[in-house]
Write a protein that binds this DNA or RNA. Structure first.
Lengths: 299, 299
DNA sequence: CGCCGAGCATAAGCGTGACTTATCAGCCCG
DNA sequence: CGGGCTGATAAGTCACGCTTATGCTCGGCG
């Protein structure tokens, strides 16, 4: 029966022994010098043997420490090797399946921040509006809209998918500078067949019998928004995605009413991979970046 | 740069892989089955790979798990070996230097409990009234009386060393059934030269000019107490040590006054060995056993 | 000679995640 | 069909590993 010391302390000692320098070891392990000092002392007290000699503002290994350190380095290499085969997959590349809209209006502009925070992990964006088959597509995480509740997937709600009509300032001026909901029935609506229109108009008190089939139909809110900016009509957009364009005056939002179909944007990935480091890092960065944006007043 | 999973989880997995049984692994590691299940799941989520197949009320290793498990077993053996040389000292024997008094009146009667709790650690008692040289005597821990404050030693106060006169019931009857402090000056005092007598009598309001040199002198409270039980006179004893004899009526305590010279009994050992497992186990058992005794009303 | 920076030790305080307890669910067996 | 093994799961607790802040010592340098 083995009688191992606490492995956290052992790991710290191995790093400290390699460098013969607590501060450097702390840096390697991503912790503070004080923590290293603490763990080493713990281990020494447990063994009853000094592992380092403290002298003149520096530490040197004792003979006992040197021998143990060398053997531990090999042991940890072995542990590392044991798991290396299991994570044969590329830890350096994270593949994100993401809708066109989210990629264009938000993610592409922020991804630099992730790379700054985690220089060793490259992100590959895979824009697709279809639901992801994680196994087949070699996708690590997906950003999707929907009602949530996918089985076998961990999910994090990113933002509620609400919407309101928007158009270009020029377009609005052409309509006399202001609009009532009822006016929309006469105006060119971008992707008018989208159920969002019916929902919003219904909530505005207008009884819409049938969806209008006329006008342009685009397959992504990103395109719809750009069409609206170009003055082609009124688009039903999610304010969060168009915050910058609203602030910059490229888009205006004639109505306060904000509707929703109960959907949201989600970050999802297989539950079984919830703690894969690259996935965890991306999740934490994404949620924090969104929080920051919300605190700053929108997208 | 290595990218190791949390080592606590790795250690649990190694044991679980060896047994292919979470409950048994939990037993080996001294934790609950729930904890093992938790750690395995953590590890699997981190690797993104199932290590066990759950089927029919039992777990079997997956191929990935089997390979990793085998390699980990070797790695932990290596870690164990790295420290084995350092703890060349005998983990199976704990040497306790202890005063005659404490050994006879308390420790010897309780030691069985320690052995029950820790069957693999044998305790060797080394009774000696001299202060211990831990290095020279190959003593692990010492139980000593004194004022405390030894440099380089960790210390735990066990009990205050207070004292009061005691004698046998027969002896007391021979004196008319009750005593006043002043009577003591005429009676045979056991180890009358002991400064405890002067201290107690002074606190009782009697001015003792010189220590009495007559009567028997014994070198240990254990012997003094037994002499008192034998009716040889009045001894100055620590109630905690003689609780059983007081309850059983072998000794009586004529006075409520309890004096002290500010000393106490201490458990001490070198600070550098504070976390050596056998020392830690003994410390925890000893302090708990004393607490239990105190809760039960004395030694 | 005195100041500063590098390096480790130490104290205090905090947050979290590794545990425990309790319960449920599946399966085997008598 | 119930009892006795398994493991999974949920909730709640507590230890302890970590951070922050500070002190100390030593060496280098102007």
């Amino acid at each position: 029966m083995r009688q191992l010391p606490p492995l956290a302390a052992v790991r710290v000692f191995e790093a400290a022994a390699r460098h013969e320098n607590f501060t450097v070891a702390a840096g390697e392990l991503g912790m503070t010098q004080a923590a290293v000092s603490y763990q080493i002392r713990l281990l020494e007290q447990r063994l009853g043997v000094p592992l380092f000699r403290r002298a003149r503002r520096r530490v040197t290994l004792t003979e006992a420490g040197r021998r143990a350190g060398a053997q531990l380095a090999a042991a940890f290499d072995s542990i590392d090797a044991a798991f290396a085969v299991l994570r044969a997959e590329d830890e350096a590349v994270l593949t994100v399946s993401v809708t066109n809209t989210f990629a264009n209006t938000w993610l592409a502009w922020r991804l630099g921040g992730f790379h700054l925070a985690h220089p060793t992990t490259a992100v590959r964006l895979w824009t697709s509006n279809a639901l992801t088959d994680f196994a087949a597509d070699e996708v690590d995480v997906a950003i999707r809209s929907g009602p949530g509740g996918w089985p076998g997937l961990a999910q994090h709600e990113l933002l509620p998918l609400d919407f309101t009509p928007m158009c270009s300032p020029g377009f609005l001026a052409g309509q006399g500078g202001r609009l009532e909901p009822v006016d929309l029935l006469q105006l060119p609506l971008i992707s008018a067949q989208d159920p969002w229109w019916a929902q919003w108009l219904r909530e505005a008190g207008l009884d819409v019998v049938e969806a209008r089939r006329t006008g342009m139909r685009l397959d992504s809110q990103a395109h719809e928004g750009h069409a609206a900016i170009a003055g082609q009509g009124v688009a039903m957009l999610t304010p969060f995605f168009w915050h910058n364009d609203l602030v910059a005056g490229r888009l205006v939002r004639p109505f306060a009413q904000l509707s929703s179909m109960g959907e949201a944007y989600w970050l999802v990935y297989p539950e079984a991979r919830a703690r894969v480091p690259k996935i965890r890092r991306f999740r934490e960065w994404l949620i924090e970046a969104l929080d920051r944006d919300r605190a700053a007043g929108g997208g």
